[in-house]
Design a protein around this nucleic acid. Sequence first.
DNA 1: ACAGTTTCCCGTAAATGC
DNA 2: TGCATTTACGGGAAACTG
Lengths: 431, 431
Amino acid sequence: EKQPCMPTHPQKPLIIKTGVQFSTKVSISLFSKCSVFRLLVKLPEVDYQLKIKTTFDKDLPPGRVNRQFFILTNNTKVMDFEESSNGCLTVDFRHLLKEKKVINGTKGNEGLLSVTEELHTLSFEANFSIQGISIDLETCSLPLVVISNVSQLPGGWASVMWYNLLTNEPRNMGFFGSPPRASWNQLSEVLGWQFFTFTGRGLNKEQLNMLGEKLLGQQVSHSDCQVSWSKFCKENILGKPFSFWMWLDSILELIKKHLLPIWNDNYIMGFVSKETERALLKDQEPGTFLLRFSESHLGGITFTWVEHNDNGEAKFISVEPYTKNRLSALPFADIIRNYKVMVDGVVPENPLKFLYPDIPKDEAFGRHYNSQQNKVFPYIPSMLVPMSTLDSTLPLCSSPEPPMTPGMFDMLNQQLRPFEIETAMNSPYPE
Amino acid sequence: EKQPCMPTHPQKPLIIKTGVQFSTKVSISLFSKCSVFRLLVKLPEVDYQLKIKTTFDKDLPPGRVNRQFFILTNNTKVMDFEESSNGCLTVDFRHLLKEKKVINGTKGNEGLLSVTEELHTLSFEANFSIQGISIDLETCSLPLVVISNVSQLPGGWASVMWYNLLTNEPRNMGFFGSPPRASWNQLSEVLGWQFFTFTGRGLNKEQLNMLGEKLLGQQVSHSDCQVSWSKFCKENILGKPFSFWMWLDSILELIKKHLLPIWNDNYIMGFVSKETERALLKDQEPGTFLLRFSESHLGGITFTWVEHNDNGEAKFISVEPYTKNRLSALPFADIIRNYKVMVDGVVPENPLKFLYPDIPKDEAFGRHYNSQQNKVFPYIPSMLVPMSTLDSTLPLCSSPEPPMTPGMFDMLNQQLRPFEIETAMNSPYPE
DNA sequence: ACAGTTTCCCGTAAATGC
DNA sequence: TGCATTTACGGGAAACTG
């Protein structure tokens, strides 16, 4: 049989994009309370097959959700008992979801909810008879979010996180009608866990602290502060055209695509207020720099270095943040390696000497330099050198704290429900 | 009714991509030989509507083509007589083509043909009765090529060009079974016309000459040489992993996306042999350069400049060609503007002074410089500077001819066939 | 193994809908 | 009109298929 390409967003399991194949695993616990399976395997006359039928939004009352979808491909699949493994039997489904256009009469219903707050489910049913006894099995997935474009992925993922962080109910479809608040304690753990899961390195105390301040303002302790869903994901950060999570997720994406090894080597302080940045760099050797994510633009990273002018006063300079477009033209390590400042037309020199606190630049980034020099006779190689040009008028900037230790997180484990048939969308949480 | 986005490859009309909407225009000439239309409009009792049915590969014997397709959406459309304009009535169709998987028994049939050599047609039928007389109208499109990915577009377009260049038959579906040769005279006209149509500037005599030499070798005159279809599009250029047309089309695409204004300003000599290049630059001022398309890589452009070493000997240096990836990081004009060579670590300087023969660089390219300096307080702006680093060991290169005058081409005009219903795919040839 | 061909689907842009 | 959402499809990559 055909093996289509890849499942949707393998790392974001509870999100389904219309028109894109997705896969589900349905498992039967061998050791569930009522040991149907053990019964089965003991009876040679039974054919070891089970038809499983999948339905989208099976018994949601119409009007409960605003959009209706259906599964395009054949929604029944035979589960074969032979291929048992580690106590469970699993079957891969691959479906396509398509929107069924319905003139929605009950419009005002939950009209406040955005598409990514609308929750759906997949139901699985199986039935078999054994010596005259008919047995029905049924279960359903955790709430799902349906999107139509990857641009909605961050919003959808925020919903999945919020839901699973704040409720244990298997299917509270109205959850986002009045979403509960999260304590900063809870939330910061999830955020760190996001970074850990998607990059391999979590967030340390200082980084989380900066995030807490950004979200909640300066507080003695953020631990007990409550964060509303709206503040987390829906309202824009004051003076910015994006919400907290959109901003944070854009950084996550930037790391995944362009900064992974450097991030994992712990060379990106990243989440640092400009004040802390200055405080940290102030007394360091000239040419000491650190790497910080932009707070003003989505998915940007900049470096700030310290210099001293003639009267010994510290001066902080930051470059215009590099975004994914610029980084795909030139990897960040190479930018750091070759960065030059030309002052009043005078000979360029790389002002970046030591990664804070005192790691020689090449020692930190050397193994990530990309020797782009591909010699193709008869041409002479050409490379791109990142360069700033200055007059003699400099704006000032400033900076944060010492290196960081990762946090470990493993909340929200494989939330398998105690049903006869247990389901998981790939596995509800990565790793 | 819904207005879907855009038609497929609006500039390459006779090519259809599966899974992508395409549109057809069907026109009724008001002044066709048998003036059905005039008849119609004179009779008030007739309803002024005509149902037109579209069929894909209507009466091609099965096995004649290797792949079978069908039109996904409704294939009949009502043409309304009211909306007449400039002597014709036109209707837009929008369809989706889908492959019908057929176990092809007659495989060996035309197995030598590639997908882009397989020709198809769209047929249009209409029927109406007038005072008891039934009238049938029918016509079909020029041969079409069906592709499944844009990567096949160049090959498909080559077929369309070759067909329309070399035959006037309305539908010789077996054309590529034994495709005729083209004289260089004919072919060079088409090539120049391609550039003219897609960029706004054609190819001059010198450029065409270089192309002729590339395709046919050195000849006293190429005019009467014959070029085979295979040589044009199927066999690779000696020592290269691509055919002549693939190479040329990659340059066309490069121009369209990254070099349009410079090309149209006539500042890209482009098609120049390395020998000619040297000959041209040899006696020019040091720092004189010209722009040439790469012959070794698909879609690349390089510049070559001349220097003189201590004993007055001319030295030719070319950079590694810039491809679309590099050009999307930095526009070509800015590369020329800021290009630097650092020799033995010594102060960079832009070696590019005069565009051949003697146009000061900034005069030629100044209006295309992109002042990328977007000042965002408190950051200092950063730009990419293209730079080559040299030891003191230089390879040599060489170069072509004076500026160029465009050629004008208008072959292959709206090839409307003398039918009652006339058809055109958007318009068979651009402009 | 491999080349020709198709499928898959992200990401941007445009269209649509509310 | 503007914003939220969907559709369109180019383009790179993976999968498929003979």
